[in-house]
């Protein structure tokens, strides 16, 4: 098990700075995804194989180029300009509208998806750099008739108000629980520290995360009413 203390929040912070410094250059973004902190498994792969296995340096653009992304277990072929971010590709090219784009600079966590199991903010990654990785979006986690335990815990605890931050919150919590099945309150708060909710839903998010963790471990959720 890799060192997983570094959750999506830290990834976001460093990618955002890279975006400002690197003016959107793909190389800068990928090199910063790991940041100066110990990279987690998915991030390492992102750094070592930013392009397909052809070996030669690859040039994309400026016009749309066809790329293949693995999203929610399926191979999806899309034609995108190299400047298109993963968030834009998911929404505008793949019709996966669950991922929300809110700040477009890695500051709010609304576009959080899983990249090889790790939470990343999809607005800070170019679609082309997501090739070769397993991407899971909120739609891949569950659907209304077969919700992931984190999703049903959000509904039961009313961990959503306007709902716009909810997909990102759910993805952050699901990523936390997949690497730490028994988080304490502090770990829950840190895992969603980069997810901003203007409706102020956080207390119920914390409650939902702890309830989902308990349910997934098969124990009675903390403070559950009779």
């Amino acid at each position: 098990m890799p060192d997983n203390r570094d959750d999506g929040q830290r990834t976001r912070v460093f990618t955002r700075r890279a975006f400002i410094k690197g003016a959107g250059a793909a190389a800068a973004i990928t090199s910063f995804i790991g940041g100066p902190t110990p990279p987690s498994a998915g991030v390492t792969r992102a750094q070592s194989s930013p392009t397909p296995a052809s070996g030669a340096a690859e040039r994309l653009g400026p016009d749309a180029a066809t790329i293949v992304l693995t999203v929610n277990g399926k191979s999806r072929k899309i034609a995108v300009e190299p400047r298109v971010t993963l968030a834009e590709a998911l929404r505008d090219h793949l019709g996966l509208h669950g991922t929300k784009l809110v700040c477009d600079r890695g500051a709010c966590g609304a576009c959080t998806v899983h990249l090889d199991g790790n939470p990343v903010v999809a607005c800070m990654m170019l679609a082309a750099d997501a090739r070769g990785h397993e991407i899971v979006t909120i739609e891949g986690l569950g659907a209304p008739d077969r919700m992931h335990p984190v999703q049903s815990a959000f509904v039961e605890a009313d961990a959503l108000q306007c709902g716009f931050c909810t997909p990102g919150m759910v993805m952050s919590v699901a990523a936390l629980l997949s690497r730490n099945p028994a988080p304490d309150m502090g770990e829950v708060k840190r895992a969603v520290a980069g997810n901003i909710c203007r409706c102020g839903t956080y207390p119920h998010v914390f409650k939902a995360a702890l309830a989902a963790a308990a349910k997934m471990r098969g124990v009675k959720p903390p403070g559950e009413r009779a």
Partner: peptide
């Protein structure tokens, strides 16, 4: 639990 909670939690609320 709010009646449209599942739509929001699964990202399907339009």
């Amino acid at each position: 639990a709010r009646v449209d909670g599942a739509l929001k939690a699964t990202g399907t609320a339009p």
